[in-house]
Nucleic acid binder design. Structure first.
Lengths: 191, 191, 191, 191
DNA sequence: AATGAATGAGAATTCATTCAT
DNA sequence: AATGAATGAATTCTCATTCAT
C-alpha cells in the first residue's frame, strides 16, 4: 500500500507555497512551476489534488479568508459587551498572523483578481459582507440604526484601508499603529 | 504624406484603451491584442509609441495617478481654511471622474501589481505619500503633531478603504455615501 | 496470503476494459486511468501484468483478431463443400459477437493505428493475409487461378468494407444485411 | 504594410503538412510541432489561422473529402449512360491522386477518429452518404429498387474495403487492381 | 498481489515582440 | 506613420511510468 492520508498534507503544503509565491513574485508571476518548486513537489501534484492552477488559487483565497474569519470570531466569542465585541473584531483583523506581509500580499492580489473572476468574487463578497454585518450588529447595540450603518461602513473601510496601505509600508505592517488608529476611530464613533 | 503630430493622440488613445481593457477583462487578461483592438489600431503601434506593453501599463498608471492628483489639488487650491482644505482633499478623491468603476478597477489592479513591479511601486509610493503628507500638513494646523499623524493616517486609510470596498458594490460606487462617511470621520477627529 | 492464479483473470479483465474504453472514448482518449477504472483495479496493475499501456493495447488487438479467427475457423471446419467453406468464412466474419459495435470500433481503431506501429502492423498483416489466403484456397476449387485471385481479393475487401461502413450506421451494425450483400456477391462470382 | 493575402497560402501549407505528418507518424503522433516543422513555419501560426490543432485536423479532413468528391463528380459529369456514371464513380475513387498512400492514410485515420469526434463524424457521414446515394441513383436506372439498394451498398463497401486493404499493401496501393475488381463486381451486378 | 501517490516529459496554447512592407 | 504576419518562449495540463508500502 502506498502512503495514505497524504491529501490534507499536500493540500496544505501547496496552499502555503501559493501564498509564498504570491508574496515573492506576485499573483501574475505565480506559475505552477514556482508553486511546486516552493512546495518541493512536482507540478503534476497540483492537477492531482486541485484539478488545476485556478482551483488551487481559489483554495488559497478561501484558506486566507477562513483564517481571517476564525481569528476574528474566536476573539469575538470571548468579548462581553458590544464595545468589546467591536474591539475584538478590530483586534482579530490586526492579529499577528493576519498582518504578516505574506498574508496581506495575497489578500490584496485576490481583491484585485476577484473583480474579474466570478468564483473569487463570490468568496470576496461573502467575506466583505461578513465584516460589515458583524460590525453593524454590534454598533446597533450602541447607536441609532442610521448611525450604526455609517459607523460600520466606516470601520470596515478603515480596516481594509489600513491593510491596503500597510502592505506598502517599507518597514512592514505596523499592527500596533493600525489598531491605535482603529480604536481611536471607534472611540470617536461612540462619543 | 505621413500624418504628423499623431504621437499625443495615439498615446492618449492607447492609455484609454488600456483602462477600458483593465475594466472589462482585468489586468491579468489584458493583452496588447485587446488593447489595440479597443483603440482601433494595430498591435505594432504599442511598441512604436511606448516600447512595449509594460511601459504602456506604467504610463496608464501614471495617468490615473496624475488625474487623481489634479482632481485633488485643483479643489485644494480653492479652499481657504485648513478644515476646508481637508474637506477638499476628500472631495477630490471622491469626485465623479475618480469614482467611476473604470477608474477604480484600474487603480486597484495597479495597487496589487505595484507590490512586485518596482516602476509601479515607485509611482504608487509617490501617490500614497502625497495623500498622507497633504493630510498631515493641514491636520497640523488643527491638531497636535501626534494627533495630526494619527488623524492623517486614519483619513488616508479610510479614503483608500472606501475605494476598495466601493469597487465591489453591486450598484456601483456611491460617492455620496463615501463622502458622508469621510466627513463624519473628519468631524469626529476635529471634535 | 496472496491470491494465486490471478494472472489470467486480471489479463482478461484488463483486455475487456480496454475494448470498452476504446468503444466509449476512442483509442486516442483511452488512458490507463480509464482502463483501470473500468476494470475496477489500480493503474499499477497494468504495468504489472502487461509491462505498459502499449503492450496491453497490443494484447487487446491480438485478442480481437484471435476471436475473429476462431469464429471463422470453427464455422469453416463444419462446412463441407468449397462453396459452403466460403459461405462459412462470410458467416464467421458477421457472426453476432464480431459485429457488436464494441468489437468493430476497436477493430477500426487498430486498423488505423497499425499503419504506424510495427507490432500492430504485424498482427494486422497476419490477419489480413489469413482471410485472403483462406478465400483464395476455396475459390480455387471453383474458379480458375486468375478468377480465384480476383474473387478472393474482392470478397475480402467487401467484408472489410461492410465492417467499415457498418461501424457508422446509426442503428447499429446490421449483420443480416451485410451477409445478404456478401452472399449476393458470392453467387454472382460463382455464376 | 505587411505581406497580405498569405492566409490561403498558409492554410494550404498547413493542411498539406498535416497530411504529410499523418502519413509519416500517424494521427496519434501528429503534433503541432511536427506539423509546423513540416510546413516550415512556427507553431503559433496554427492557432493564428485555424484557432487550434483540432480545427486544423478538421480542415484537413474536409479538404480530403472535398478533393475526393471533386475527383468523382468531375468524372461523373463527363459520363453519359448510367453504367458509365457508375464506372466514373469507381474511377474517381481510384484516380491517381486519391490512391496515394498519403491520402489513404489520412482517410483511414479520420475514419477511425470520426467515431468519437462529432465534428469529424458529421463530415464523415456526409461523405459516406454521398457515395451511397450517388450509386443508388444510377443503379436504379438499371435495376429494380431492391436490387439497386443492395448493389449500391455492396459497391460502396467494396470501394471502401479496397482502400482499407490497399493502405496496407507493401508495394503501395495498386489502383489498377482495385479498379479491375470493382469493374468485375459491377459487370456481375448488371449481369 | 495490489495499490495509488508522485513524477516529469511532452503536448497544446497564449501572447509580447519583431520586422518587412 | 502604421500594419499585422510571423515568431518562439513560457505556461498549463495530461498521462504513462515508477515505486514505497
Amino acid at each position: 500500500m502506498p502512503k495514505v492520508g497524504m491529501e490534507p498534507v499536500r493540500r496544505a503544503q501547496l496552499i502555503d507555497a501559493t501564498c509564498e509565491s504570491i508574496f515573492r513574485f506576485g499573483l501574475a508571476d505565480t506559475t505552477i512551476n514556482k508553486i511546486s518548486g516552493l512546495a518541493g513537489v512536482s507540478t503534476g501534484i497540483i492537477s492531482h489534488y486541485f484539478g488545476g492552477k485556478n482551483e488551487l488559487v481559489e483554495a488559497t483565497m478561501r484558506k486566507i479568508l477562513i483564517d481571517l474569519g476564525e481569528a476574528v470570531s474566536s476573539r469575538v466569542r470571548q468579548a462581553k459587551t458590544p464595545r468589546q465585541k467591536i474591539w475584538a473584531i478590530i483586534e482579530g483583523n490586526f492579529s499577528h498572523h493576519q498582518t504578516s506581509l505574506r498574508f496581506v500580499t495575497s489578500w490584496l492580489a485576490f481583491w484585485s483578481q476577484a473583480m474579474h473572476v466570478p468564483s473569487l468574487a463570490k468568496l470576496q463578497n461573502v467575506n466583505r459582507r461578513r465584516l460589515q454585518s458583524n460590525l453593524v450588529f454590534w454598533y446597533r447595540r450602541l447607536l441609532s440604526p442610521e448611525e450604526a450603518k455609517i459607523a460600520a461602513d466606516g470601520m470596515a473601510a478603515l480596516i481594509d484601508g489600513l491593510w491596503l496601505r500597510g502592505a506598502f509600508e517599507q518597514q512592514g505592517f505596523d499592527s500596533q499603529k493600525a489598531k491605535a488608529i482603529a480604536f481611536d476611530y471607534l472611540n470617536r464613533q461612540l462619543v
